[in-house]
Deep mutational scan, measured.
Amino acid sequence: LELTLRVGDKTWHFKDVDEEFVRHLEELLKRGAHEREIEEIIREWLR
């Protein structure tokens, strides 16, 4: 999967994204996660 995600003024483009990561992001967005929380999840995933 490829994913382009825009949060606030930042845009990330990922290739070979894990479906579990996408589901986790979807859940965060559904519950109205704040920009900082989403950025933290992305940084963790990139490690």
Rank of each mutant, 00 (worst) to 15 (best):
L1A: 09
L1V: 09
L1Q: 14
L1C: 07
L1N: 14
L1G: 15
L1I: 11
L1T: 12
L1Y: 15
L1R: 12
L1F: 14
L1P: 12
E2A: 05
E2D: 15
E2I: 09
E2N: 09
E2Y: 04
E2G: 07
E2L: 05
E2V: 06
E2S: 11
E2T: 10
E2W: 07
L3N: 02
L3E: 02
L3Y: 10
L3P: 02
L3S: 03
L3T: 05
L3V: 11
L3C: 01
L3R: 02
L3D: 01
T4F: 08
T4S: 10
T4C: 06
T4P: 03
T4M: 07
T4V: 13
T4I: 13
T4G: 02
T4W: 08
T4Q: 07
T4R: 05
T4A: 07
L5H: 01
L5N: 00
L5F: 12
L5A: 01
L5G: 00
L5S: 00
L5Q: 00
L5Y: 02
L5D: 01
L5K: 00
L5T: 01
L5M: 05
L5E: 00
R6W: 06
R6A: 14
R6H: 15
R6M: 15
R6D: 12
R6F: 04
R6S: 15
R6P: 04
R6N: 15
R6Y: 04
R6V: 15
V7E: 01
V7H: 03
V7N: 02
V7A: 03
V7G: 01
V7I: 11
V7W: 06
V7Q: 01
V7L: 12
G8E: 02
G8H: 03
G8T: 01
G8V: 01
G8P: 00
G8L: 03
G8Q: 02
G8C: 02
G8D: 02
G8S: 02
G8F: 03
G8R: 01
G8N: 08
D9H: 06
D9W: 02
D9I: 03
D9P: 03
D9K: 05
D9T: 07
D9Y: 02
D9M: 05
D9Q: 07
K10Y: 10
K10W: 07
K10D: 04
K10S: 08
K10P: 00
K10V: 12
K10M: 09
T11I: 14
T11D: 08
T11Q: 06
T11K: 03
T11E: 12
T11M: 10
T11H: 10
T11S: 04
W12G: 00
W12C: 01
W12F: 10
W12I: 03
H13P: 01
H13F: 11
H13I: 11
H13T: 11
H13R: 07
H13S: 06
H13E: 05
H13L: 06
H13Q: 06
H13W: 06
H13G: 02
H13N: 06
H13C: 06
H13A: 04
F14K: 00
F14S: 00
F14E: 00
F14A: 00
F14V: 04
F14T: 00
K15T: 08
K15V: 07
K15S: 06
K15F: 08
K15M: 09
K15L: 08
K15C: 02
K15N: 09
D16H: 13
D16K: 15
D16F: 13
D16L: 15
D16M: 15
D16Y: 14
D16V: 13
D16G: 12
D16A: 15
V17G: 15
V17T: 15
V17R: 09
V17K: 13
V17F: 04
V17S: 14
V17M: 05
V17Q: 11
V17E: 15
D18R: 04
D18P: 12
D18F: 03
D18A: 09
D18V: 02
D18T: 12
D18C: 03
D18S: 11
D18N: 09
D18M: 02
D18Y: 05
E19V: 15
E19C: 03
E19T: 12
E19D: 07
E19S: 14
E19R: 15
E20M: 13
E20L: 13
E20K: 15
E20V: 14
E20W: 14
E20F: 10
E20H: 12
E20A: 14
E20P: 15
F21V: 04
F21A: 03
F21E: 03
F21H: 02
F21M: 05
V22A: 04
V22R: 04
V22M: 06
V22N: 01
V22P: 01
V22E: 02
V22K: 05
V22F: 06
V22W: 03
R23W: 08
R23K: 14
R23A: 10
R23Q: 09
R23Y: 08
R23M: 10
R23S: 10
R23N: 12
R23V: 05
R23T: 09
R23P: 01
R23L: 12
H24S: 14
H24W: 07
H24Y: 12
H24G: 12
H24L: 13
H24D: 08
H24V: 10
H24C: 03
H24F: 09
L25I: 10
L25V: 08
L25R: 00
L25A: 04
L25E: 00
L25H: 00
L25F: 01
E26N: 09
E26V: 10
E26A: 10
E26S: 07
E26M: 11
E26Q: 13
E26K: 12
E26Y: 11
E26W: 08
E26P: 00
E26L: 11
E27A: 12
E27S: 10
E27N: 13
E27Y: 12
E27D: 15
E27C: 06
E27G: 10
E27P: 01
L28A: 11
L28T: 07
L28Q: 09
L28H: 07
L28F: 05
L28G: 03
L28N: 04
L28D: 02
L28W: 05
L28V: 08
L28M: 12
L28P: 01
L29T: 08
L29K: 04
L29C: 07
L29R: 04
L29D: 03
L29G: 04
L29V: 15
L29E: 03
L29I: 15
L29S: 06
K30G: 09
K30R: 13
K30Y: 11
K30L: 11
K30V: 10
K30W: 08
K30D: 10
R31F: 10
R31T: 13
R31A: 14
R31Y: 12
R31I: 10
R31L: 13
R31S: 15
R31D: 13
R31Q: 14
R31E: 11
R31K: 14
R31N: 15
R31W: 10
R31C: 05
G32C: 04
G32R: 00
G32L: 03
G32P: 05
G32H: 07
G32K: 00
G32F: 05
G32V: 04
G32I: 04
G32D: 05
A33E: 07
A33P: 03
A33I: 10
A33C: 09
A33T: 14
A33F: 09
A33Y: 14
A33H: 10
A33L: 09
H34D: 14
H34C: 05
H34E: 13
H34P: 15
H34R: 08
H34I: 08
H34M: 09
H34W: 05
H34F: 04
E35A: 09
E35F: 11
E35L: 10
E35Q: 11
E35M: 08
E35V: 12
R36I: 12
R36Q: 15
R36F: 11
R36V: 12
R36M: 14
R36G: 13
R36S: 15
R36P: 06
R36A: 14
R36H: 15
E37N: 02
E37C: 09
E37F: 07
E37V: 07
E37T: 07
E37Y: 12
E37A: 07
E37G: 03
I38M: 06
I38Y: 04
I38G: 00
I38T: 01
I38V: 11
I38A: 02
I38R: 01
I38P: 01
I38N: 01
I38F: 09
I38S: 01
I38K: 02
E39N: 12
E39S: 06
E39C: 04
E39A: 06
E39L: 08
E39P: 01
E40M: 10
E40C: 05
E40I: 09
E40K: 11
E40A: 12
E40H: 10
E40S: 12
E40T: 09
E40Q: 11
E40L: 10
I41C: 05
I41T: 11
I41H: 10
I41D: 04
I41N: 08
I41F: 15
I41S: 09
I41K: 11
I41R: 09
I41V: 15
I42E: 01
I42R: 00
I42V: 06
I42A: 02
I42S: 01
I42N: 01
I42G: 00
R43N: 15
R43C: 03
R43A: 12
R43F: 11
R43H: 14
R43G: 09
R43E: 14
R43P: 01
R43V: 14
R43Q: 14
R43L: 13
R43S: 11
E44R: 06
E44W: 03
E44D: 12
E44L: 07
E44A: 08
E44F: 04
E44G: 05
E44P: 00
W45K: 03
W45V: 04
W45P: 01
W45Q: 05
W45R: 03
W45T: 03
W45M: 07
W45H: 14
W45L: 06
W45I: 04
W45E: 04
W45Y: 15
L46T: 05
L46W: 06
L46A: 06
L46R: 04
L46F: 10
L46N: 06
L46I: 13
L46Y: 11
L46M: 11
L46V: 09
R47H: 15
R47T: 14
R47C: 05
R47W: 11
R47M: 12
R47Y: 10
R47P: 10
R47I: 14
R47E: 14
